[in-house]
C-alpha cells in the first residue's frame, strides 16, 4: 500500500486530502450543531458556479471562487440566523440557482475546454503543489483559530445569546467562521467536487456525536474519523480504481452506519 505514495500526484493528494479532512471536520462540528448543515451544500454549489464562470471568462478560477464564496457564506450565515427569513429555503434557492448558472455558463461557452465532472465530483489526483501549499496554510489557520477560540466557539454553538451577553463578539466570530468555511469548501472541491464536499463536512460530526458525549470529545473524534475515512478512502480508490471522492464518502457512510449500530447496541 505504501508503494502508491511513490507517485508525486499521490503524495500531493495525501497532503491536500488530510488538510481538507481536518478543516472540514472542524468546520462541520459548528455547522452541524448549529443546524446549518445544508450551508456547506449551498456554498459548494456557489463555488461551482464561480469556478465555471471564471473559467469561461478566462480568469483564474480559485481567485474568483474564493472571494465569491466568502461573501456568499457571510450572507447565508446571517440569513440562517435571521428570524424573518426561512434560512433553509434561502439555501435551497442559492444551491439550485448556482448550479443552474454554472451549467448554463459552461453550455453557452464556445472554445473553452471545461471538465464538468472534475468540478462536480472532484479530481484530487490532479492537485498541484499550489493546492498543497494552500491546504497546509488553511489547515494551520483553521486549527490555530480553533485552539485559540475553542471555548468561545463552544459558547456560540451552544447558546449564542448567552455568549453575546458575556461579551463574546459573535459577529466577528461569524465573519471569521464564514471565511474559513468558504476556504475549506473551495479547496475541498478539489477533493470531492461540489456535489460531495458537504458530506465531508457533515459525516464526521454526525459519526462523532454517536461516539462522544461532550463537545471536546466530538471535536477530537470528528477530526480523527475524518482523517481515517480519508486514508481508507484514498487507499481503497487506488486499489479498486474507483473515484477518490465517491470512495471517501462511502467510507464515511460506512463508518457512520457502524457507529450508529454501536450506539444502539450499548
Amino acid at each position: 500500500m505504501i508503494e502508491m505514495f511513490q507517485y508525486a500526484f499521490m503524495q500531493r493528494a495525501l497532503i491536500v486530502g488530510l488538510c481538507v479532512a481536518i478543516c472540514a471536520a472542524l468546520v462541520g462540528v459548528s455547522l452541524v450543531l448549529r443546524k446549518n448543515s445544508m450551508i456547506g451544500d449551498g456554498l459548494s454549489h456557489t463555488a461551482f458556479s464561480a469556478f465555471a464562470l471564471a473559467t469561461v471568462l478566462g480568469l483564474a478560477p480559485l481567485y474568483v471562487a474564493l472571494p465569491v464564496v466568502v461573501i456568499a457564506s457571510f450572507f447565508v450565515l446571517r440569513l440562517s440566523q435571521s428570524k424573518k427569513v426561512h434560512g433553509d429555503a434561502a439555501i435551497a434557492v442559492l444551491s439550485a440557482s448556482s448550479l443552474a448558472i454554472g451549467t448554463f455558463a459552461i453550455s453557452v461557452s464556445k472554445g473553452v475546454n471545461i471538465d464538468l465532472n472534475s468540478y462536480l465530483f472532484g479530481s484530487i489526483l490532479s492537485a498541484s503543489w499550489t493546492d498543497v501549499i494552500m491546504s497546509i496554510v488553511l489547515a494551520i489557520i483553521v486549527v490555530g483559530l480553533y485552539l485559540f477560540a475553542y471555548h468561545r466557539i463552544f459558547a456560540i454553538t451552544f447558546d449564542e445569546e448567552f455568549a453575546k451577553s458575556v461579551g463574546v463578539k459573535t459577529g466577528i466570530y461569524d465573519a471569521i467562521f464564514a471565511a474559513i468555511c468558504s476556504c475549506t469548501i473551495v479547496l475541498g472541491m478539489r477533493l470531492l467536487g461540489s456535489l460531495l464536499i458537504s458530506s465531508l463536512i457533515i459525516f464526521p460530526t454526525l459519526t462523532a456525536m454517536r461516539l462522544a458525549k461532550n463537545f471536546k470529545g466530538v471535536v477530537f473524534a470528528s477530526v480523527l474519523i475524518s482523517i481515517i475515512a480519508f486514508l481508507i478512502g484514498l487507499a481503497s480508490s487506488y486499489m479498486l480504481a474507483t473515484p477518490t471522492g465517491a470512495t471517501v464518502v462511502l467510507v464515511n457512510l460506512t463508518v457512520f452506519i457502524l457507529a450508529t449500530i454501536l450506539k444502539k447496541l450499548k
Binding site: 463552544f154 451552544f158 455568549a163 463537545f215
Partner: peptide, 12 residues
C-alpha cells in the same frame, strides 16, 4: 442531542 457536559456549559 447537543454533546456537552454540565462542566463545559457552566465553565462558559
Amino acid at each position: 442531542n447537543f454533546p456537552a457536559t454540565v462542566e463545559e456549559i457552566v465553565l462558559s
